[in-house]
Design a protein around this nucleic acid. Structure first.
Length: 468
RNA sequence: GCCCCCAUCGUCUAGCGGUCUAGGACGUCGCCCUCUCACGGCGAAAACAGGGGUUCGAGUCCCCUUGGGGGCGCCA
């Protein structure tokens, strides 16, 4: 039987970093085995589900490159089928009507907690014979009372639960709507899901779901519960830890392949290999190499991976991707048209950037003259002999035959040698006047790309402004 | 409180009884390269949570303790 996995987010918020990884693992497992990766939107929480959240989740998955097969299934549209199954269970005596009120249940739980027990339904209505017509009821699953239910987890191994620990869970609410545990089982079955890959926070639901499968006589899928992602401090990921939504990383200019690589290595490993492309992951991923322990989110490692993928990214693609980020900082299409080809800058800049935001910052000086100058840099480099060297440079550069990196490099070197100074004595002043900062690609390349006219104009303007 | 899961450098991890004087990567700290920043190269510090077993032999198997995490809804 061919593999079918699914990602089943509830659209009550954003696509969380943890959800993204669950989706990634499900996707990779399906691809690796030549199977299908499906989507199911669990939008049965009538109040909290929003179309906006659905859009954001689908967009996030697409951005990461997690393409799904077949049309997404909307759980809310399948209520009739869920209810049909509940009725079947009822008819077969595997479920029953429970007339207990929420207040009664709360009191029951309170009492159990007080006695140090695990709060759970005590089965009061289990053997009830009467069916009061006028009272609201829920449908409960008649769970086995003795024995144990075993989960043979692909990541965790054998996990067993005493059936006595599991109570009769609600399948259908008093308002007639199906609950999660019923819906997942029915949907996973109907969708032909062979492998349920989800966060370890679902582990305790699993024995109950297995019991439902068994009551229905359905094939139980394989389960794989993957460890959770914790914040850098070991606590549950929250806004306090910075970005938790996948969209925030896109906003910050991270390349999707960097996020994918990072997420994949959080919990999964392949020997000593750290860097992976999506193609490699689709070849190599397996559940057996997924660790059991929770992992902490390490932003430093993400940044390193981001730089690694940036350096290897295609120049033309980067040039396109960086445009919106340039626009944000005042470099529009018109400005781009006046400067060098964006794509020509990429080999120089991508070496120095981890994100598209940084890439845009680095590109900006090639299209706009500095508005101000880094104060510390000015104090450090623009003093004493710098002005004389600059003056000589401007003078000679004006007459330079070929305005290219090689010629400029030779000129700067000559001037410095003649003055008995290191190249930095001239390169840094030029850099600051050209870009406003002490950091840029090699000075000869920077000058060459900015061009003779604009370079000289900036140098003169800077000298006028700062040489007091 | 009860149930379940987990436990190797600060972090992600390799390790699937002997090849471990515990390997890699990020980060950190040196040094080199160098016109700046990066990249790159070299090197260093840094871990098997604790205690019992099993075994000729335990990071690797079992138990306990401790610590972390998850769950205990008419949420998903």
């Amino acid at each position: 039987m061919s593999v079918r996995t699914r990602f089943a987010p509830s659209p009550t918020g954003m696509l969380h970093i943890g959800g993204a990884r669950t989706a990634l693992f499900s996707y990779l497992f399906a691809r690796r085995h030549g199977g299908k990766f499906l989507l199911r939107i669990e939008d049965t929480d009538r109040e909290r589900s929003t179309p906006e959240a659905i859009r954001v989740i689908l967009e996030g998955l697409a951005w990461l490159g997690l393409s799904w097969d077949e049309e997404p299934v909307y759980q809310s549209r399948r209520a009739a089928r869920h209810l049909e199954i509940a009725e079947r269970l009822l008819a077969e005596g595997k479920a029953y009507r429970c007339y207990c009120t929420k207040e009664e249940l709360e009191a029951m739980r309170e009492e159990q907690r007080r006695r140090g027990e695990k709060p759970r339904y005590n089965g009061r209505c289990r053997h009830r014979e009467d069916h009061p017509e006028d009272r609201p009821f829920v449908i409960r699953f008649k769970a086995p009372l003795a024995g144990e239910t075993v989960v043979n987890d692909l990541v965790l191994g054998r996990v067993s639960f005493a059936n006595a620990e599991l109570d009769d869970l609600i399948l259908v609410r008093s308002d007639g709507t199906p609950t999660y545990n019923l819906a997942v089982v029915v949907d996973d079955h109907d969708m032909g899901i062979t492998h349920v890959i989800r966060g370890a926070d679902h582990l305790s639901n699993t024995p109950r779901q297995i019991q439902i499968y068994e009551a229905l006589g359905w094939q139980v899928p394989a389960f794989a519960h993957i460890p959770l992602i914790l914040g850098p401090d070991g606590a549950k990921m929250s806004k306090r830890h910075g970005a938790t939504a996948i969209t925030e990383y896109r906003e910050q200019g991270y390349l999707p392949e960097a996020i994918v690589n990072f997420l994949a290595r959080l919990g999964w490993s392949h020997g000593d290999q750290e860097t992976f492309t999506m193609e490699e992951l689709e070849q190599l991923f397996d559940l057996g190499s997924v660790g059991k322990a929770n992992a902490r989110f390490d932003p430093k490692k993400l940044d390193w991976l981001a730089g690694w993928h940036m350096r290897r990214a295609d120049d033309a693609r980067l040039a396109e991707l960086v445009k919106p980020f340039l626009a944000r900082i005042g470099v529009d299409e018109a400005a781009l048209a006046r400067g060098p080809e964006l794509v020509a800058l990429m080999p120089l800049l991508k070496e120095r950037a981890k994100t598209l935001v940084e890439l845009a910052e680095l590109a900006k000086p090639f299209y706009r003259a500095p508005e101000d100058y880094d104060e510390k840099a000015v104090k450090k480099h623009l003093r004493g002999a710098a002005w004389e060297l600059l003056a000589r440079f401007v003078q000679e550069a004006e007459a330079l035959k070929d305005w290219n990196a090689e010629a400029l490099h030779a000129l700067i070197r000559r001037i410095c040698e003649e003055a008995g100074a290191g190249m930095g004595k001239l390169a840094q002043p030029i850099r600051i006047l050209l870009t406003g900062r002490a950091v840029s690609p090699p000075i000869d390349a920077t000058l060459a790309l900015i061009g003779r006219e604009e370079s000289l104009r900036r140098l003169r303007a800077g000298m006028r402004r700062l040489q007091s």
